[in-house]
Design a protein around this nucleic acid. Structure first.
Lengths: 133, 133
DNA sequence: ATTACATTTGCAACATTGTTGCAATTGAAA
DNA sequence: TTTCAATTGCAACAATGTTGCAAATGTAAT
């Protein structure tokens, strides 16, 4: 699916900023930070526009957002075709890459009486295969 | 164990800021944000001092830090007497409380060949028992 | 193609969280 | 009480994110 079609299907205006973000994130094989996305992008957009685009795309479930510590935010495609609904994320302490582990589903945790769970985030920190060599 | 003794045992200087933070976090039954801690604190400390105190206390494993989205950071006691090493955290979308689920250990997730895991963070978002009533 | 209008953009200003350098102060040991 | 390293407060700065508003743009109807 192309970026333009994703926007069209969601009845969102096809602006170059939105289109560019989707394309960059879709072709990356890891989650990218705001700056990593901007570097790979042709146009030069205001930070406000960037944030508003992220917000819109997250609301429409085109992207999802993963926070590592704080001050470290990454975005990834949230396409149900390629990603499991609730998958674990892996963060490499060495190269700072963040990968969606589509094959690692999140376990359901048993909560105490009265607690209702809505979503569960799992972030595994460690060293990735690349950095171990 | 009293705050002062914790500092003494770790060979840390017993300053009122450190002592106050430990006492506040120790007596709370949930993780607290910087502001929540400051409100409950007698003295008035500079933000820099606060952050440096947090840093020191986290390094010495007196506290641990949990990030919810970003722009939402909470601190909790990291005492091995009361907390399991790796426990899940519960965040209430309604009242914004964050609780350490000491009785919910974090599952070991199986990573692909070549990946080494160091720590795993589990954050369960939902509605707490209080807010469901 | 042109027009019309709602949506989106860019800019300025501001908020929050966090860091660094440096001089002044404080804790703790001799 | 003295001494000295550790800690504090201040100023300045960085990164991430938000809001209001006028200008520009996308899209649908003509």
């Amino acid at each position: 699916m192309k970026a333009i079609d994703i926007l069209k299907n969601l009845n969102l205006k096809r602006t170059s900023c939105r289109e560019g973000i989707i394309e960059v994130v879709m072709t990356a094989n890891e989650a990218l930070s705001e700056n990593e996305i901007r570097e790979r992008l042709a146009g030069n957009y205001d930070r406000t526009t960037f944030y508003r685009s992220f917000k819109t795309l997250i609301e429409h479930k085109v992207l999802h957002k993963i926070v590592v510590d704080n001050q470290l935010v990454k975005y990834a495609i949230d396409n149900t075709l390629t990603h499991k609904d609730e998958h674990a994320h892996f963060y490499c302490n060495e190269c700072n890459a963040l990968k969606c582990m589509d094959n690692i589903p999140v376990q359901k945790y048993q909560l105490p009486e009265g607690f209702a769970d809505i979503e569960t985030e799992v972030l595994i920190k460690g060293i990735c295969a690349n950095c171990r060599n």
